[in-house]
Structure formats: structure tokens, C-alpha cells
Nucleic acid binder design. Structure first.
Length: 242
DNA sequence: GAATCAGAACTCCGCGCGCA
DNA sequence: TGCGCGCGGAGTTCTGATTC
């Protein structure tokens, strides 16, 4: 069954600029669309539509950072028929508008959030632990707290640590969160672009005044993981420059 | 003036759920 | 594993504001 899901993911990665429907993807997996939908979600953690959208936004990030194409041209190239939809989805997923992202990719500092995160005023707890890296990270390590196992937008809180080891986030709003760690990894044989090492915790429940500990290992994500879209303060520029 | 961003109103289909 | 159904959200179109 996983072979079918893998064929569908290959189809998404190869043909993201086409208007792929659920029926198209189920056909490429050679299973009924009803069973395909359930299995896809179990294997990847997201629905086929969200996976396709993530691949399109990820490709748009690449084009914004490596070409001088206009935002309108890029929206068309990655499969959006509407510039308005593209801009809205990009901003939701990445946490920056397309032109703001291009500026960051070209070396400008990451703009501060104008409005603070709506949940930052909640009573807070704290989070600490240790990050492991397999293979070794070749950049500082981004550690951030998101509200979903598929990070979107900006983290509720984050910090950068210089190397694998202990970390501490002293002000994490009360709630249910996922901890993401990411760093640039070594360049794989035959590739010019280094891999991105990722690790995502299970759901963490933060309560006011309480402390939570977590151990997390970052590694090269396998084929079933959708692209990471959130902008990563501290290592985004290193990823783009690589 | 061109490019970009964002809001409003609308359509349509993906998704979740329950059942067979 | 297949199917039906209703809802919500993704995408489209249009438009106006903003920036350069």
C-alpha cells in the first residue's frame, strides 16, 4: 500500500504545476480514492490537497530565492491560477509575503511580527531538553514551538542553539504545542544542495508555571514528509545560499 | 504606471464521518 | 474497502489600497 502512496507523492512532486485532483492521485496510487484518502493521511499526517499545496509553496520559495521572476509569474509556474490565492496561501504558510520572503532570502533581516502572536499573552510555562542530530548538523539549530505537527507561519516562540545539546525556552504560552528542531545537514553524494535535518515532537501540553522536558533527534526526513514551509530564523539564509 | 498585497463574494470539490 | 452526503475550506475573480 505504501508503494501506491509513494507513487502519488512522486506524482505530486513531478506534476505540482498541473491541476491534480484527488481522482488523479488515487489513480496514480492504483487504489480507490476513498481508501487512498485515508491511507495517505495515515502515512503522511496530512491530506493529499495539503501535501500538494505544500509542494507548490515550497517550489515558489525556491523560485523566489533563486530567480528574478515576478510574484505573478511564479504563482502561475507553481500551479496557481490566481495571484490573490497564491499570495494569501504563501503568507499563511511561510509567515511572510512573497516579496518579504525574497528580501530575507537575499540577506535582509527577518522582519519582526508587527502584531505579537495572539497567544503570547497567555500564562506561560517553560520547556527544555536536549537536541540530537543524525547526521551531524552543519549550521546552528532552530528550535521553535508551533501549534501543528505541520508547521505553518511563524512559531509562537523560538530560539537558535549553536550545536546539538541542551536548550531552554523560558516563556511558552499554555496550550498544546509541537516542538520543531531544524538545521542544515551535510550535502548528500551527487547533490549540490545540502539536506535539511528535521525533528518534530509529539504533542506537548504546556500549563502555566509548569516545566516540560523533551528529547528530540533531528535527521533527514524521508519521502513521506511534506516540505517545511515556515521561515526559519537563523538558518533560512544558509539554506538559500547553499 | 506597474507590481504587489489583501479583502469580499462566490463556486466547487476535498474531506470527515457514518454506514454497508 | 467502497460509497453517500453535508460542510468547510481552497481557489477564482474582481477590486481597491499601497509601495516603489
Amino acid at each position: 500500500m505504501k508503494d501506491g502512496i509513494r507513487r502519488a507523492i512522486d506524482a505530486i512532486r513531478d506534476r505540482y504545476e498541473e491541476p491534480l485532483s484527488l481522482d488523479d492521485l488515487a489513480r496514480s496510487a492504483m487504489i480507490s480514492k476513498f481508501h487512498f484518502l485515508r491511507t495517505f493521511r495515515r502515512v503522511t499526517g496530512v491530506t493529499p490537497g495539503r501535501f500538494l499545496s505544500a509542494v507548490r509553496i515550497h517550489e515558489a520559495k525556491h523560485l523566489l530565492s533563486t530567480t528574478t521572476l515576478s510574484v505573478a509569474d511564479i504563482s502561475i509556474q507553481v500551479g496557481y491560477g490566481s495571484l490573490g490565492t497564491f499570495t494569501r496561501r504563501f503568507t499563511e504558510c511561510v509567515g511572510l509575503s512573497p516579496t518579504a520572503y525574497r528580501r530575507v532570502a537575499q540577506g535582509e533581516p527577518l522582519p519582526e511580527d508587527g502584531a505579537t502572536h495572539p497567544l503570547r499573552d497567555r500564562p506561560a510555562g517553560s520547556l527544555s531538553g536536549r537536541i540530537h542530530a543524525i547526521p551531524p548538523a552543519e549550521s546552528p539549530i532552530f528550535v521553535g514551538v508551533f501549534d501543528s505537527p505541520v508547521p505553518r507561519g511563524r512559531p509562537v516562540t523560538s530560539r537558535l542553539i549553536e550545536q546539538p545539546g541542551p536548550f531552554r525556552l523560558t516563556t511558552v504560552p499554555a496550550g498544546r504545542w509541537h516542538l520543531l528542531a531544524a538545521a542544515v545537514g551535510p550535502t548528500a553524494d551527487g547533490h549540490s544542495v545540502p539536506s535539511l535535518l528535521l525533528g518534530m515532537s509529539d504533542e506537548l501540553r504546556i500549563t502555566p508555571g509548569r516545566h516540560v522536558q523533551v528529547e528530540l533527534t533531528i535527521r533527514t526526513p524521508d519521502w513521506r514528509y511534506p516540505p517545511l514551509l515556515s521561515v526559519l530564523p537563523g538558518i533560512e539564509r544558509l539554506r538559500v545560499a547553499a
